[in-house]
Computed example of a mutant assay.
Amino acid sequence: MEERKILWLALILYMTTAPVYCRYYSRSVPYASSRKKVSKLHFFFHDRISGKNPTSVLIARPNITKDGKSQELPFGSLFAVYDPLTIGPEPTSGVIGHAEGLYVMSSQDVLTLVTYLDFGFTSGKFNGSSISVFSRNPVTEKERELAVVGGRGKLRMARGFVELKTHFTNETASDTIVECHVTVIHH
């Protein structure tokens, strides 16, 4: 009986001291900033809603009318995107990747999108790498800025910004060419 009491006492003592020695985290160490790189990228993307081979497709649309008339692209419209990234603004310019993602019409008064795009590169120095952009995009402004929130491959853990400038718009066909200047900090 005495041995049993000693065993229970040892077990209780062990259980009360165990949490002192175990943690769910490891020791914090300073981040090695010397491993960070800054890259600047310049390219164009071509967004075509019209024509035989559109690169942006309406995938959901709310049933909203305004003053008894249906809006062409109402608040809440959602698009899937697969835009080519090119070296120059010409549609025949060399393709270096694609912008894949979604954008949603997010404003009821001024044409504004909430944009999620993954710029995936298929050639050059960053072949096989990508950066992820998620931000508000006020497309009626000629120049605007989007946030880089991540990356993979050679652009792993990227952060930074993309300066967008509308290069060309055909409003009747809803086609746009956008110039991108990217500044990204990565590993």
Rank of each mutant, 00 (worst) to 15 (best):
Thr55Trp: 01
Thr55Tyr: 10
Thr55Glu: 03
Ser56Pro: 02
Val57Ala: 06
Val57Ser: 05
Leu58Thr: 02
Leu58Trp: 08
Ile59Val: 15
Ala60Cys: 03
Ala60Lys: 13
Arg61Lys: 08
Pro62Gly: 05
Asn63Asp: 15
Asn63Ser: 15
Asn63Leu: 14
Ile64Val: 15
Ile64Glu: 07
Ile64Ala: 10
Thr65Glu: 15
Lys66Trp: 13
Lys66Leu: 14
Asp67Leu: 06
Asp67Pro: 06
Asp67Lys: 09
Asp67Glu: 06
Gly68Ile: 10
Lys69Asn: 12
Ser70Gly: 07
Ser70Leu: 12
Gln71Arg: 14
Leu73Thr: 15
Pro74Glu: 11
Pro74Ser: 12
Gly76Trp: 05
Gly76Ser: 04
Ser77Lys: 04
Ser77His: 07
Ser77Asn: 10
Leu78Asn: 08
Leu78Ala: 09
Leu78Cys: 11
Phe79Met: 14
Ala80Ile: 15
Tyr82Glu: 03
Tyr82Ala: 12
Asp83Cys: 02
Asp83Pro: 03
Thr86Ile: 01
Thr86Gln: 00
Ile87Leu: 04
Gly88Asp: 07
Gly88Ala: 04
Pro89Ser: 10
Pro89Cys: 05
Pro89Trp: 02
Pro89Asn: 07
Glu90Gly: 10
Pro91Gln: 08
Pro91Asn: 13
Ser93Ala: 14
Gly94Gln: 11
Val95Asn: 01
Ile96Met: 05
Ala99Thr: 02
Gly101Ala: 11
Leu102Tyr: 09
Leu102Pro: 08
Leu102Phe: 09
Tyr103Lys: 11
Tyr103Asp: 09
Tyr103Trp: 09
Val104Glu: 03
Val104Lys: 04
Val104Tyr: 06
Met105Cys: 07
Ser106Lys: 04
Ser106Gln: 07
Ser107Asn: 15
Gln108His: 07
Asp109Glu: 13
Val110Lys: 03
Val110Pro: 07
Thr112Ile: 13
Leu113Ala: 14
Leu113Pro: 01
Val114Gly: 01
Tyr116Lys: 04
Tyr116Asn: 11
Leu117Ala: 09
Asp118Phe: 05
Asp118Thr: 11
Phe119Asn: 02
Phe119Arg: 03
Gly120Pro: 03
Phe121Ser: 00
Phe121Pro: 00
Thr122Tyr: 05
Ser123Met: 06
Lys125Ile: 15
Lys125Arg: 11
Lys125Asp: 13
Lys125Glu: 08
Phe126His: 10
Gly128Ser: 12
Ile131Trp: 00
Ile131Met: 09
Ser132Thr: 14
Val133Arg: 00
Phe134Glu: 02
Ser135Asp: 14
Asn137Ile: 14
Pro138Thr: 08
Val139His: 01
Val139Ser: 03
Val139Arg: 00
Val139Gly: 01
Val139Trp: 01
Thr140Met: 12
Glu141Gly: 02
Glu141Phe: 04
Glu141Met: 09
Lys142Phe: 05
Lys142Tyr: 09
Glu143Gln: 12
Glu143Phe: 04
Glu145Gly: 04
Glu145Asp: 04
Glu145Arg: 11
Leu146His: 00
Ala147Val: 12
Ala147Glu: 10
Ala147Tyr: 05
Ala147Gly: 02
Gly150Thr: 08
Gly150Trp: 00
Gly150Gln: 07
Gly151Gln: 02
Gly151Arg: 06
Arg152Ala: 05
Arg152Cys: 10
Gly153Tyr: 02
Gly153Glu: 01
Arg156Trp: 14
Arg156Val: 09
Arg156Cys: 03
Arg156Ser: 12
Met157Thr: 11
Met157Glu: 15
Ala158Pro: 01
